[in-house]
């Protein structure tokens, strides 16, 4: 499946008019055709598309992602260097979204159609509709420009010489705004899914049974309804991981975080095909890994999944 992704993106990006050499020469203020030709030859850009595709795939088999023309460095190095920042951003945003989203969802879903439910639902609809990059701008206007409480760009203070705990605190401070901007939309989404899943679970027989047993309301809500409503949320998390990775491109651009998404944007401006293919491949790999991990979590939450597979 990842192979399909590689071949498709390769063919898509090869259909480009103008390649990295054009962009490179343009950035140097132009050059003559002979230089362009020799550069193309050294990067293998003068060969036919099929030959290049084969060349790319065979080097990929050796885990070699190629050479970035715009940066003058191996693609794999660049990606590995930028990936941790993005994973940190996405991980924190997911944690925020999942934690707050499920708790608020439980609050709203505990008493369907109550006033609390209606207020929380309306609020979540508005939050869900906010474009993340606009929220990022507004947050940085309020907290970084007006109040000056939080830094508006970067992942840490440059050349601060901090290490250990002080550096971690510094990074955390820099991450508050971007994580907020990225996480709020998903928080609203998880809230809505959790609420509607709980509304479905309330109708099931075992809830009526738990009630008939005389269990307290909070115990029914937490142990019976919420626990079962978590299942669709885990599926949702996997589906959203691709969208979140896409969203981090814009957020990283706003907050000037040197991450994976910014790398994608730089690859786009530099017409850097090997880098762009490498990025798309890595992100696809990441999404597959996240979903694999969530399948394991799913089996833990719902014993029926594992049992069914053993039976088959």
């Amino acid at each position: 499946m990842l192979l399909i992704v590689v071949v498709l993106t390769f063919l898509l990006l090869q259909s480009a008019s103008g390649d990295a050499v054009d962009a490179y020469l343009l950035s140097m203020g132009g050059g003559d055709a002979a230089i362009a030709q020799s550069l193309r030859q050294s990067y293998g850009l003068d060969q036919s598309e099929i030959a290049r595709l084969w060349l790319y795939l065979s080097s990929l088999a050796r885990l070699d992602l190629g050479w970035s023309v715009a940066f003058g460095r191996p693609v794999a190095d660049l990606i590995l260097e930028r990936l941790p920042n993005t994973l940190l951003l996405m991980g924190s945003a997911t944690a925020l979204a999942f934690g707050l989203g499920t708790s608020l969802g439980i609050v709203a879903g505990a008493r369907p159609e109550s006033t609390t439910d209606k207020v929380v639902s309306a609020l979540s609809l508005i939050l869900y509709a906010i474009p993340s990059f606009w929220l990022g701008l507004v947050l940085s206007i309020v907290f970084a420009v007006q109040l000056r409480w939080l830094p508006s760009s970067g992942i840490e203070t440059i050349a601060s010489g901090k290490s250990g705990f002080a550096r971690a605190a510094d990074i955390a401070l820099h991450l508050i705004l971007p994580v907020g901007a990225l996480g709020v939309i998903y928080m609203a989404l998880f809230l809505r899914v959790m609420r509607s899943a709980m509304a479905e679970v309330w109708k099931l027989d075992f809830v009526a049974f738990a009630r008939a047993k005389g269990l307290s309301r909070s115990r029914i809500v937490l142990r019976h309804v919420a626990r079962n409503a978590l299942l669709p949320l885990v599926t949702m998390l996997g589906l959203q991981s691709a969208a979140m990775l896409g969203g981090s491109v814009v957020i990283e651009s706003i907050f000037a975080i040197p991450g994976f998404g910014r790398l994608a944007q730089e690859a786009v401006t530099g017409r850097d095909t090997p880098l762009l293919i490498g990025i798309i491949l890595t992100s696809a790999l990441l999404v597959v890994l996240v979903n694999l991990l969530l399948d394991l979590v799913y089996a833990l939450l719902d014993p029926r999944v594992g049992a069914a597979e053993e039976g088959a």
Binding site: M1, V5, T9, L12, L13, A242, A243, L245, G246, G247, V249, V250, A264, Q265, V268, L276, I279, I280, S283, A284, V287, V288, N291
Partner: peptide, 11 residues
């Protein structure tokens, strides 16, 4: 479905 749509659009 596994490629982030936004990255694909960007590319």
């Amino acid at each position: 479905q596994i490629v982030p749509g936004f990255l694909l659009a960007l590319a």
